[in-house]
Design a protein around this nucleic acid. Structure first.
Lengths: 158, 158
DNA sequence: TTCCTATTTGACAATCATTTACATATAGAT
DNA sequence: ATCTATATGTAAATGATTGTCAAATAGGAA
């Protein structure tokens, strides 16, 4: 299933669904490919302007929203001020959120019990079950948890 | 452990930690007691103004933040535009989020495996593991999922 | 290839949640 | 009752995200 698609595949999917593929969109697809840094819309925008000085943040938001609607990326709201985007749409894939530096890491975890089945259908129909692990990453533990970066600070994509 | 404290207990804890107990704070404690509606700061505020016409949203935010710092309530950011506050601080307590009406429900779940132990200490030190189940509640399923309420709409506390 | 039109874009303003600034009011210890 | 640190309210600032709309353009049709 739709895990990590190439820019070309995404362009095809966009056209197939009646959308147009513009240079800015293609570039966004490229910036997302294999990106495991969980960038914010602004992180993407800052990379984008390097090549396209006139792009607007709005275009980034719009393209990301469309990708999300198509199920090609997921939008994570982890309570850090701004949404993070993740091109990894794998199931059994959860997140480690460092409350010190704000970094978000993917974490593969296949539970013996299927989480969705834990909730009675008579009560609620589960579409998606996500686990958020909050704590401190090894780097911040070494730095005594004092690693400056506030939750609202920009995290440049590597 | 600190699960569901009475307004009086909270007043005591506030004084004990050098904070002052004002009428508006006491009222906020009352509004939170036994409240399982997962109100936003604004929901609380709207109830509060009924008794105290001059109270400000800022006071609500501040008091809620202090309660959170004291570990007496938890702040949930579920990606619905505004944070939800939950006086239930029970461990093994997760959330069902209806993507149709925006309602948030508590869900007790004791997994046979301890979630925290799933993450290697060498990688990340977990403080808290929370599961968010997204899907549709029974009510919205009956209404054909068309139950109007947008994610940013206000949800009055019952 | 050129044309045509629905879709995108970008500049800008608007909105929403949350925080800051600061002068005034007040809880609660003495 | 006094005094001072803390809390309050007004009003304005901030940051993320969305709406408006005229101008630009992708890409199918001719």
């Amino acid at each position: 299933m739709g895990v990590v698609r190439s820019p070309d595949e995404l362009c095809g999917l966009f056209r197939a669904s009646g959308r147009k593929v513009t240079p800015q969109r293609r570039r966004i697809f490229e910036l997302l490919e294999g990106n495991s840094s969980h960038p914010t819309a602004d992180n993407i925008y800052l990379e984008l302007v390097k090549d396209m000085p006139t792009v607007s943040l709005k275009t980034v938001y719009l393209t990301l929203k469309e990708l999300e609607e198509m199920g090609e990326i997921q939008c994570l709201d982890l309570g850090m001020g701004s949404a993070r985007f993740d091109p990894n749409v794998d199931l059994e894939h959860h997140h480690l959120v460092c409350v010190s530096c704000g970094q978000v890491r993917d974490f593969e975890l296949s539970l013996s019990q299927d989480l969705k089945c834990q909730v009675p259908e008579a009560i609620f129909s589960v579409t998606k079950a996500e686990i958020v692990f909050r704590g401190t990453c090894i780097v911040c533990q070494r730095n005594g948890g004092v690693s400056a970066v506030g939750s609202r600070d920009k995290v440049r994509i590597s």
